[in-house]
């Protein structure tokens, strides 16, 4: 695969952000602990509410007292230097941390007002509602069709064979992959190119009709062209899904997200409208990070 560093587009971040900021004049800076709803709260209610979240790996604490609201049908970008807890946080949102034996999560995480760590929550159902796309494309070593059909099948979402085929075609179309693979749905999914594999993984995630899609650095293993395609796709998907994306690329965060959260050493530094964060960060660490002075 291509070097992750190569995937960074060369667009200067500041100019890009400035353009977007010009379109959206009302952009109050949202900071840590801010409880006022954002201006667009009616159309974008809080989908996931996190309060006082601490995560431990064994004795090591990875997240400290995290509080953040993820808004519906928006792209929220999580940025910050490596090892700052971004991935740890999104893995909390569909309880993927459960698979790590030494991981321990405390605090409150609510999906539509329901505590996802409460005992009466079914993890399988939660993960069907909150899908995830990983950093490295990981299609199953099965056919393209089977990759997408697997989720709907285990959740019993398709009434019959034709129904299932329809779901697969719709998902692949929405992931922008259908035109490229429509003649070889029975070929192995692992035979696709890196960018195609990642879009296949996105198709696989949306095939189970989730409400939230978590993306853990989805473009870090892709070249700039494939990255652009996936970014277009994310922009398209936000009309129907709530998206949380972890990225190391400031440009990407600026391009695809409406809200941005800056993490540092396990703490949430600040969170707010993307344009505001990029044009007028309140915290020095954020300013240093997005201008490339460290991290």
């Amino acid at each position: 695969m291509s070097n992750p560093d190569m995937a960074e587009p060369i667009t200067p971040p500041a100019g890009h952000v400035a353009e977007e900021a010009a379109d959206d004049s009302v952009a109050p800076v949202a900071t840590v602990g801010e409880t006022d709803p954002a201006p667009a709260a009616d159309s974008h209610p809080v989908k996931i509410r996190s309060r006082n979240v601490d995560v431990f790996y064994g004795d090591k604490q990875a997240l400290f007292d995290l509080g953040i609201d993820i808004r519906a049908r928006m792209v929220t970008a999580l940025i910050g230097p490596s090892g700052c807890g971004k991935s740890t946080y999104i893995r909390c949102l569909n309880r993927m941390n459960d698979t790590i034996e030494i991981a321990r999560v405390s605090g409150l995480i609510e999906l539509d007002g329901q505590d996802i760590y409460s005992p009466d929550i079914d993890v399988v159902e939660l993960r069907a509602r909150v899908g995830i796309v990983f950093q490295k494309p990981n299609p199953f070593p099965k056919s393209i069709f089977e990759n997408v059909a697997y989720g709907p099948r285990i959740h019993g979402l398709a009434a019959g064979k034709t129904d299932l085929e329809e779901i697969v075609v719709t998902s692949l179309t929405r992931a922008g992959l259908f035109e490229e693979v429509k003649d070889r749905l029975e070929d192995p999914g692992t035979g696709l190119s890196g960018g195609q594999q990642q879009r296949l993984c996105i198709a696989r995630a949306i095939a189970v009709s989730p409400e939230v899609i978590l993306m853990d650095e989805p473009c870090s293993a892709l070249d700039p062209i494939a990255t652009a395609r996936v970014e277009e796709l994310i922009d398209d998907l936000r009309k129907n899904y709530t998206i949380v994306i972890v990225t190391h690329s400031m440009q990407q965060a600026a391009r695809v997200s409406q809200r941005t959260a800056m993490f540092h050493l396990g703490y949430l530094v600040e969170e707010g409208q993307t344009d505001a964060i990029f044009t007028n960060p309140t915290d020095k660490r954020t300013r240093d990070y997005i201008t490339g002075r460290y991290g």
Binding site: M96, T99, V124, E125, R127, N138, G151, A207, V208
Partner: peptide
């Protein structure tokens, strides 16, 4: 590879 397990768990298997 653990990625296979994560992929399956991630879509709710």
């Amino acid at each position: 590879p653990p990625s296979i397990r994560e992929g399956a768990l991630g879509i709710g298997a």
